[in-house]
Amino acid sequence: MSKILQAEDLTKDFSVRDQRGRRRMFRAVDAVNFSIERGNCFGLVGESGSGKTTTGRTVLRLIEPTAGRITFDGVDITKADMAAYRRRMQIIFQNPAGSLDPKYQVGDIVAEGLRANRMCGSRAEYRQRAEELLRQVGLFPEDALRYPGEFSGGQQQRIGIARALAVEPEFIVCDEPVSALDVSFQAQIINLLKRLQQEKGLSYLFISHDMSVVRHMSDRVGIMYRGRLLECGEAEEVIGHPAHPYTRALIDAIPIADPDRSAARTRRPPVYGAEEAVTGCCYASRCPYVTERCRQAQPEAKKIAPDHVCSCHLFE
């Protein structure tokens, strides 16, 4: 199998102002390394502010990286002209309503990418192709003439998916595609994304804060915290045998929809720490196993199983 995407030491700094109005640098993504095999799904899990969305946008170069290297299908695209790659790399956004232009008919939204890339010969062909795409995502061909506001959240997300699929991409960044949806729609969209992946051999970077959704979708996963990739590897391995204290805390905190098992689980008292910048491990202020070394030195990524890497001093 070949790698469709590889990120090496990917770093992104944003210039922000602190409370006194002074400029300073904020490192949203900090030396992140991961790769995605063709036809696979890589899940990126983390809490809000952990840098997962910035990572997703940076690999598409919707945000320019500060440092590091992005390789797509064997070609270094860190500095390349992206026009040649936009058709092959697409994105699905979290907020379906906000990512669809309310003044465009659904058919035009879906066909916009086709037109930009001159993928069809005639107007009739564009319309036919848009209708076919709508059918593929479970909508009706007649829906092409309606406007986004006439659809429910789940249907709007289907339109977003049809738009991403239109240009026949190989790689799609799914940025929290189901987080804004109701429970009954979530399962519909997850099934749709999975079916499309199998039918078209797509590769996904699947970003979510919901560990159970990521586990269901992904072949490999990465756990992010404050811009750093703390743990990464094969999905069952990482989730079944979490190594990093943060991953363990994250998995323990997932509510279980079963009263007996929910009551039976044990809880560790939370560690409250000051949220200040430290020179050492970014998780040091909340970690129950913290040592002096964690506060001083940043842990290196260490291989602890064939496809399982963890950045923690406990494993050195």
Partner: peptide
């Protein structure tokens, strides 16, 4: 019953599709 089944759990077999409630509210 549909809602309870539609939510992916940490134990769900990945190769079995989820059972959504079809249609819209």
């Amino acid at each position: 019953a549909g809602l309870l089944n539609a939510v992916p759990t940490m134990e769900h077999d990945k190769n079995v599709p989820l059972q959504p409630i079809e249609g819209t509210p």
